[in-house]
């Protein structure tokens, strides 16, 4: 079977898988960003309890494997009465894992905002919440966008694991097609290239664009 024949026969399934992978990536990224901002801010708190809770969360999720977390969320959580369908369990696990890594980026980004900015906001009598939202956070975002680009690529790669709980993403389709045809080089090679293109031709340019937009908004260009 030539490669063109292979693509005409199995291309649609790979496209379906790619769409699921894209959905998983976007939803997982949303979860990761929410958790990263929350845990990152909690890590800056002077309240021992809040700081401690975020630290425990981060250490647990960074200290174990994504695959272990995924299986735990999918197979063990139902025993505690919380049953998630595989699609939800997939992006939640990936998002919670990468969110723990992102929390440190958020914390670092906020700490890298010059002290004068905090003092200026204080001098203008801004409330702490307003100071964070209007002054500190926008500048922190600009500082942490480059490492977030890498993190989002890690996240895209992480979503490949959801195939192991039978979410029909690109990885899953590739595995299925390989199982029925044994055209391993074609199917896994194509899947690898699709992942590569998603990372290099979608995520990286998107993050560069975001960096430009943010820099312009803050008047840095």
């Amino acid at each position: 079977m030539s490669y063109v024949e292979f693509l005409t026969e199995f291309g649609p399934r790979l496209v379906d898988g790619t769409i699921t992978t894209a959905q998983q990536t976007i939803l997982a990224a949303a979860v990761a960003i929410l958790i990263a901002v929350a845990a990152g801010l909690m890590r800056l708190s002077h309240n021992r309890l809040i700081y401690g809770a975020a630290t425990v969360y981060i250490e647990i999720f960074r200290g174990t494997s994504l695959l272990v977390q995924l299986y735990w969320i999918f197979f063990v959580l139902p025993l505690f009465g919380l049953t998630l369908d595989k699609f939800t369990a997939g992006f939640m696990a990936v998002g919670m894992n990468l969110g723990a890594y992102g929390a440190e980026l958020v914390r670092g980004g906020i700490l890298s905002v010059p002290k004068g900015q905090w003092e200026a906001a204080l001098a203008l009598n801004m409330s702490p919440a307003k100071r964070m939202i209007r002054i500190i956070f926008p500048q922190a975002i600009l500082n942490m966008l480059p490492p977030w680009g890498n993190l989002l690529i890690e996240l895209l790669k992480g979503t490949a694991l959801v195939a192991l709980i039978s979410v029909t993403d690109l990885m899953f389709e590739a595995k299925q097609i390989n199982g029925s045809t044994f055209l391993s080089a074609q199917v896994f090679g194509t899947a690898l290239i699709i992942y590569y293109l998603m990372a290099r031709c979608l995520i990286t340019p998107f993050m560069r664009w975001l960096e430009r937009i943010m820099a312009r908004k803050l008047g840095r260009i």
């Binding site: 690529i153 895209l156 790669k157 992480g158 979503t159 490949a160 694991l161 195939a163 192991l164 990885m171 590739a174 896994f188 899947a191 690898l192 992942y195 590569y196 990372a199 290099r200």
Partner: peptide, 8 residues
């Protein structure tokens, strides 16, 4: 670096 380890 840009492709999933599990697929590799």
């Amino acid at each position: 670096r840009s492709t999933p380890l599990v697929l590799q």
